[in-house]
Amino acid sequence: MTRTLEATTTAPAAPSVGTRLRTLLFGRSAAIIALLVIVWIIASVSVDNFNTPNTLYFLILDVFPVLLIALPMTFVIITGEIDLSVASMVGLSSVTIGALFQAGVPVPAAVAAALVVGIVGGAVNGFLVTALGLPSLAVTIGSLALYRGIAVGILGTTAVTGFPDVFTDLVKERLFGRGTAIPTVLIVFIVLAIIAIVILHFTGTGRSTYAIGLNKEASAFSGINAGRLKFWFFVATGTVSALAGVFWTLRYDSARGDNAMGLELVVVAAVLVGGVSIFGGRGSLVGVIAGVLVIGALRSALRLADVSSDVINVATGLLLVVSVIVPSIITAIQRLVQRRRAAAAAS
C-alpha cells in the first residue's frame, strides 16, 4: 500500500550529466592522467629526443615489469593488504629459468616451471595471510627475504646467459617493424590489463574487492568471502611477478638472483601515486596504469636529460610522498573551511 506511493517525490534523481562529468574530470584518476600529460609535454619540450619512437619503445620495455605487477598489486592493496615479495619473485622466477636452462631444460618448459613457482609462492603468501590471519606486511617482508634468499642461494653471484635468440628477440620485437615504438610484448600487458579492468570495475568480484577494503565486517554480512578472494589475489601477484621475471631474464639475456632488486618499492609507489589508498577500498586501474607511466616517463626523461639515476630515485620518492600528502592536505583544508562555516552559522 504505502510502498506504491508515488516514487518520484522521494527517490533520488539520476545523477545529472554534469555530476558525472565533474567526477570524471576532477577525480583522482583524472588528476593522475593530467599529471602524466603534463610530464609528457614538459619532457617533450625540454628534453631532446624524448618524443621519439625509440624513447617510447625503451620507456615501455623499462616499465613493463612494473606495469604487469601493478595490475594484481592494485587488487591486493584495494583489499587492504600488501605484497612486498613481488620483486623477489621476479628474481626467483629468473633463477628458476636460469638453473633449468643450465641443466638442459628447453626454455618453454623452464618458463612454465617459473610460472608454477610464481603460483606456489603467491599461494604461500595467500595461505599465511588468509588461513592463518597473519598481517600481510610482516608475511611478505618475510617472503621477500625468503624468495630472494632462495634465488641468490641457488645461483650465488653467477649469471646464466646465452638464451636462444628466438626467445630473447621475441621480447624485444617491435610490433610494427623497425623504428616503431610499440614492443610486441605490450600485447601481453594489454590483454592482462583489460582482464583486470573488467574484473575490478565491471564484475561482482570487483565490487567485493572494494567492499572488503572498505569494511571487512559488513562485506562478510553481505556474503562476501574475503579470505578466498584475497588468497587468489596473492596467487595472481605471485604468478604475474613470475611472468615479469620471465620477461626480465629474456630481455637482458641474464638470469640472476639479484634481478629486479628493490622493484617492489617502485611497484608500490606507482600504485599509490596512481591514487590507490594504502588503507584499501579506493583507487582505479586506469589511475594505476597512469601512475606507472608517470614514473616511467619521469625516469626516462631525466635519464635522457643526463640526470643520474640516483636523482631519478629522489624524484620517484618525492612523487610518492607528495602524491599521498596532497590529498591529506586537501581534506585538512576542507575540514577547516567546514568548521569556519559552522562557527559562522552558529554565531
Binding site: V139, G142, Y147, R148, G149, V152, G153
Partner: peptide
C-alpha cells in the same frame, strides 16, 4: 648466499 633465505624463514 643462503643467509637471506634463513632470514626470511625466521621472520615467517
Amino acid at each position: 648466499f643462503w643467509q637471506q633465505a634463513v632470514v626470511g624463514a625466521l621472520i615467517i
